[in-house]
Simulated assay, not measured.
Amino acid sequence: MKEADFDSLGNPLIRSSAFYVQDVNTGEVLLEKNSSAALPIASITKLMTSMVVLDAHQNLGEVLEITEDDVDRIKGTSSHLTVGTRLTREELMHLALMASENRAASALARNYPGGMPAFLEAMNVKTRLLGLGETRFYDGTGLTKTNVSSARDLASMVANASRYPLIREFSTSTGYTATLANGRTHAFHNTNALVKSPDWQIDVQKTGYISESGKCLVMQAWMGNKPLAIVLLDSWGRYTRLGDANRIRKWLEASLARQQLALNRNTNSATDHAN
């Protein structure tokens, strides 16, 4: 472990302004800072978007079309999904979760029964049902800064998202090739490089970024045979959120190693006394 990654007490130096690490099984909070602050969450929104779509049991094989209504008028971001592209609801969910495609998420929300108003109501109803007190949604993409949540709420959200097999599969997929409106194909890739790392076993993940939110990352990952919720909000460096995640992993691995060493010593001591 590099000394610069840890303080004098051996705790990880986390650069994200808000973070939360929790043992999903026991509820034990392992690390936290500013965990109840309601902050913009950008494309982490797409986890809730996908849950709401799946809860509605809509036909995943239905073909939907990207229209001018899906073009980003908030931030002016570009998209590889050209207007006129026709993909199944399942493909759009895949691209929204894996590649964070805003037009895909917009099309999913727009084609919800009752349209966008009903979709936003469903998002916020689910938020209340999950007990997420610091969370509010005003669109299905996360492009608006008014979509907010806390690190603590997001730990619960990602744990709930992990119960959906398709969300687990699509959010951790490394790549997918889709056919666009002009007949050409485009290879999309995961926005989170950690899904390719042999050091990580990730169940669910989602990245996010708009200028108001900074770089964000939520994951449920396995360490030491435990599922952990890891939430990192408002990181500004290009690689800060990934660096923070790796510092947390190294810290947890070191903690587990110390616990195992202490357990072995206690076991050996008890054996010696017995003899």
Rank of each mutant, 00 (worst) to 15 (best):
K2I: 08
A4D: 15
D5F: 14
D5S: 15
D5E: 13
D5H: 13
D7G: 02
D7H: 05
S8Q: 12
N11Q: 13
L13Q: 14
L13H: 07
I14D: 02
R15H: 06
Y20D: 12
Q22K: 15
V24M: 11
T26H: 12
G27Y: 04
G27S: 10
L31Y: 09
E32L: 09
S35H: 10
S35E: 13
A37F: 03
A38P: 11
A38E: 11
L39T: 13
S43Y: 09
S43A: 14
T45I: 08
L47H: 09
M51H: 13
L54A: 06
H57V: 00
N59F: 05
N59D: 15
L60H: 07
E62G: 04
L64V: 00
E65P: 03
E65S: 13
T67W: 04
D70G: 01
D72G: 04
R73C: 01
R73E: 07
K75V: 06
H80R: 08
H80W: 03
V83P: 01
G84Y: 04
R86F: 02
L87F: 03
L87D: 02
M93A: 05
H94K: 10
L97F: 05
A99C: 00
A99L: 00
N102V: 07
A104R: 02
A104Y: 01
S106T: 06
L108E: 10
L108N: 09
P113C: 02
G114L: 04
M116T: 09
P117Q: 04
A118T: 02
F119G: 03
L120N: 05
N124V: 01
L129F: 01
L130G: 09
T135M: 05
R136F: 03
D139H: 07
T144L: 07
K145N: 05
T146L: 10
N147Y: 08
N147A: 10
N147E: 08
V148T: 13
S149M: 03
S149C: 06
A151S: 13
D153N: 14
D153C: 09
L154F: 04
S156W: 02
M157E: 15
M157Y: 13
N160F: 14
S162P: 02
P165M: 07
L166E: 12
S171E: 01
S171G: 00
T172H: 06
T172C: 07
Y176S: 04
T177Q: 12
T177Y: 01
T177K: 12
T179W: 00
G183D: 10
G183R: 07
G183Q: 08
R184N: 14
R184H: 06
H189K: 05
T191F: 00
N192K: 03
D199E: 13
I202L: 05
I202M: 06
D203C: 02
Y209R: 06
Y209H: 14
S213E: 05
G214H: 05
K215Y: 12
Q220M: 10
W222S: 14
M223H: 14
M223N: 12
N225K: 11
K226I: 01
P227I: 04
P227G: 10
L228V: 14
A229V: 02
L232D: 09
R238H: 09
T240K: 00
R241N: 13
A245I: 03
R247I: 13
R249G: 02
E253Q: 15
A254T: 12
S255V: 04
S255N: 06
L256M: 08
R258M: 09
Q260E: 15
L261D: 14
A262S: 09
L263E: 15
N268A: 14
N275Q: 10
